[in-house]
Amino acid sequence: MLIGYARTSTQEQKAGLNGQIEELKALGCDEIFTEQVSSVDQREKLDEAIRFARKGDVLVVTKLDRLARSVPHLCRIIEALEAKGVGIRIVAMGIDSTTATGKLMLNVVGAIAQFEREMMLERQQIGIAAARDAKKFKGRVPTARRQSERVMQLLATGMPKAQVMKELKISRASLYRIVQEQTATVSWRSA
Rank of each mutant, 00 (worst) to 15 (best):
M1S: 09
M1Q: 08
L2Q: 12
L2M: 13
I3H: 00
I3G: 01
A6H: 07
R7T: 07
R7Y: 08
R7G: 06
Q11N: 08
Q11P: 10
E12D: 15
E12W: 07
Q13Y: 08
K14A: 13
K14F: 05
K14L: 09
G16K: 08
L17W: 02
G19D: 04
Q20P: 02
I21Q: 06
I21C: 01
E22D: 14
E22T: 11
E23L: 10
E23P: 01
L27H: 13
C29H: 01
D30E: 14
E31L: 08
I32S: 03
F33I: 02
T34K: 12
T34Q: 11
Q36G: 13
R43M: 06
E44F: 11
E44D: 12
K45H: 04
R51Q: 09
R51N: 08
R54I: 03
R54C: 07
G56Y: 02
V58K: 13
K63L: 01
K63R: 06
L64H: 13
R66T: 04
L67C: 07
A68P: 09
R69W: 06
R69N: 01
S70K: 04
S70A: 10
V71T: 07
C75E: 13
I77S: 04
I78W: 13
I78C: 12
A80R: 10
A80Q: 10
L81W: 00
E82L: 06
E82Y: 10
A83G: 15
G85S: 10
V86M: 03
V86D: 02
G87A: 10
R89C: 04
R89M: 12
R89I: 02
I90V: 15
V91N: 04
I95R: 07
S97P: 02
T99F: 06
N107F: 06
N107L: 10
A111G: 15
F115Y: 14
F115A: 14
R117E: 03
E118V: 05
M119D: 09
M120Q: 10
E122R: 10
Q125A: 14
G127C: 00
A130T: 00
D133C: 12
A134K: 14
K136Y: 07
K138H: 08
K138L: 12
G139Q: 01
G139T: 00
V141D: 04
P142K: 12
A144L: 05
R145L: 08
R145F: 09
R150E: 12
R150V: 07
V151A: 09
M152W: 01
L154T: 01
G158A: 01
K166V: 00
K166P: 05
A173C: 12
L175Q: 06
R177S: 11
Q180F: 11
E181M: 13
Q182P: 03
T183L: 09
T183R: 15
T183W: 02
T183M: 14
V186H: 13
S187N: 14
R189H: 09
S190A: 15
